Computed example of a mutant assay.
Amino acid sequence: MLAGILGGQGTQIGGHYYFLLFFLTAPLVVPTHDKRGMAIVCAICVSWFCLFELHPWPSSIAVQALGPATIKLLYLSVLLSGSVVLFVALLAGEYFSELLERRIQQMASTDELTGLGNRRVFYQVLAQWQAAYHCEQRPFCVAMLDIDHFKNINDTYGHEAGDQVLRALSMLLRQGVSQEDVVCRIGGEEFAVLLAGHTLEQARMVCEALRQRIAATPIRAAGTQLQVTVSLGVGQCKGPDCLAGIDRALYAAKHAGRNAVHLHQAGVAEPNQAQV
């Protein structure tokens, strides 16, 4: 656009001042933290302006024949169109920058295989809920669960079948809790569920329902129906060491025969009697 303007109008009517416009808007186009890029853009714009200011040339004969009024109208039209193009470009750049930033944040917080929140999300939400508990005494519980004998599934049917089991289990977990609750995959076959506003007894009932639903739902993988069970440890988070206690409850559930829910309360892992 500048080549066309300067080639026809020359520099006598100020077409080269567009470079100053780009110089002034450089902070909007180049990220402010990119100091090197900012310096390069500004130096290029100022250099071109100085070059045309020191070495001007007249308009072409065809443009001069249009008359001063027509040239001014043409100049104003080009100025207006350039402003519109720049404005649209800035809006588009801001939109795509925000879109890219949201996509990056989503990729950083989402487990790629299951679509659940990852370990990072789990600890972020846990910290937020713990802060809310200390300020407002808002109770919540955490359940940690493992797929029973998951290694046997991978060894027998292959890792693709294992991935299918993980995806199916993730769907069952999401469907078995409320929208306020948060389900995350925090390890290979290890999941965590943050249960908002739940007492320990309410959390036990939710976890027991999840355990029964998973055990009663065959999962199709590798062309066959697999019967999958899970072991769960659940506790109410009131202190910084609650996860260690819940992990011990999960460990107790696995060593008590699996496919069970064990509770953690006051540092003691108590078995839930509803066990298959």
Rank of each mutant, 00 (worst) to 15 (best):
G4M: 10
G8M: 06
G10D: 07
T11S: 09
T11L: 03
G14N: 08
L20M: 15
L21V: 15
T25A: 13
P27D: 07
V30W: 08
V30E: 11
P31Q: 08
G37F: 05
G37Y: 06
M38N: 01
V41Q: 00
S47Y: 00
F49Q: 04
C50I: 14
F52G: 00
F52A: 09
E53F: 06
L54C: 13
L54D: 03
H55N: 13
I61G: 07
I61P: 04
V63P: 03
Q64C: 10
A65C: 02
Y75H: 11
S77E: 10
S81T: 13
S83C: 14
V85W: 05
L86H: 13
F87R: 09
V88D: 13
G93S: 09
Y95N: 07
S97N: 10
E98T: 10
L100T: 14
L100W: 02
R102P: 04
I104M: 14
I104Q: 12
D111W: 02
G115T: 00
V121E: 05
V121C: 07
F122T: 09
Y123Q: 08
Q124D: 14
L126Y: 10
W129F: 03
A131G: 04
A132I: 01
A132S: 15
A132E: 15
Y133D: 02
Y133L: 02
C135E: 11
R138P: 01
C141V: 05
H149I: 01
T156E: 13
Y157G: 00
E160Q: 14
A161I: 01
G162Y: 02
V165L: 05
R167V: 02
A168I: 06
A168H: 12
A168C: 11
M171R: 11
R174D: 04
V177W: 06
Q179H: 09
Q179E: 12
Q179M: 05
V183K: 02
I186R: 01
F191E: 01
A192C: 12
L195Q: 06
L195H: 03
L195M: 12
G197H: 12
H198R: 14
E201V: 09
Q202A: 15
Q202W: 05
A203D: 11
M205P: 00
V206A: 12
A209D: 12
R213H: 13
I214V: 15
A216L: 06
Q225C: 10
Q227Y: 07
V228P: 10
T229A: 04
G233F: 01
G233C: 03
V234L: 05
C237M: 12
L243T: 02
D247P: 03
D247N: 13
R248Y: 05
L250V: 08
Y251D: 08
Y251I: 06
H255N: 15
H255F: 01
R258T: 11
R258F: 03
V261T: 10
H262Q: 07
L263N: 05
A266L: 06
E270T: 14
P271L: 11
N272E: 06
Q273H: 12
Q273K: 05
